[in-house]
Computed example of a mutant assay.
Amino acid sequence: MPRSKKVLHSDCSDSHSNEQPPAKRAKTEKQRLSSGVKTEDGTVFDLDRYKRVTVREFKGKLYIDIREFYEQNGKQLPGKKGISLQPEQWRKLLSMTDDINAALAEH
């Protein structure tokens, strides 16, 4: 991604407010990451500050889109880094989680 593009997160702010204690802030972050938000583009789940999973329709077909976002001219835009999976591919990936976790444990 070119350096001129800044990655954006919808809850991103430059300062950390003292309005909530850290434990409360952590719980809010955990809740936000685990529950989807319905938008006009689909249901959006934040993975971290820079990545999202969106369940959406495109040209009449359902996709699970995993993508990085950036900000340009005050707008949130999807980056080139990402993948869109069909529901069958998503289910196949989910069926592999035990094997993938075992491979992670080996490293």
Score class of each variant (00 low, 15 high):
R56F: 06
D48V: 11
R52H: 00
Y50I: 14
Q31P: 08
I66G: 08
R67A: 03
E40R: 04
K27F: 12
T28C: 11
V53R: 02
F58A: 15
G60W: 05
D65K: 13
R56Y: 01
D46N: 14
R67P: 01
L62E: 10
V37M: 05
D65V: 06
D65T: 10
E40C: 08
I64P: 00
K27H: 14
D48A: 04
L33M: 12
F45H: 02
V37L: 06
Q31F: 10
F69C: 03
V44I: 12
E29Q: 11
F58I: 02
F45T: 00
K61H: 11
F69M: 09
E29C: 09
I66L: 14
K51D: 06
K38G: 07
R32W: 05
V55Y: 00
F58K: 13
Y50C: 14
E68H: 07
L62V: 11
G60C: 14
G36F: 00
R56H: 03
D41T: 09
I66V: 15
K38Y: 05
R56G: 02
V53H: 00
G60L: 13
K61C: 08
K30I: 14
L47H: 06
L33F: 08
V53S: 01
D46Q: 12
R56K: 02
Y63T: 01
F58R: 10
Y50A: 14
I64A: 03
R49C: 11
L62Q: 13
L62H: 13
V55Q: 01
R56Q: 03
K30Y: 10
L47P: 09
L47T: 12
L47W: 11
G60S: 14
T43Y: 08
F58T: 13
L47A: 07
F58P: 00
K38W: 07
E57T: 10
L47V: 10
D48L: 03
T28I: 13
G42F: 02
V55P: 01
K51F: 10
E68G: 05
T54I: 01
R67H: 07
K61N: 08
K38A: 13
Q31H: 13
D46Y: 09
L47Y: 10
L33P: 09
Y63D: 02
Q31V: 14
F58Y: 15
K59H: 07
E68V: 09
G60Y: 07
Y63G: 03
I66N: 11
E57S: 08
E40D: 12
E29I: 12
G36P: 00
F45M: 09
I64C: 03
F69K: 05
V44P: 00
R49Y: 06
K61A: 09
G36R: 00
G36T: 01
R32K: 15
R56S: 05
Y63N: 01
L33A: 14
F69W: 06
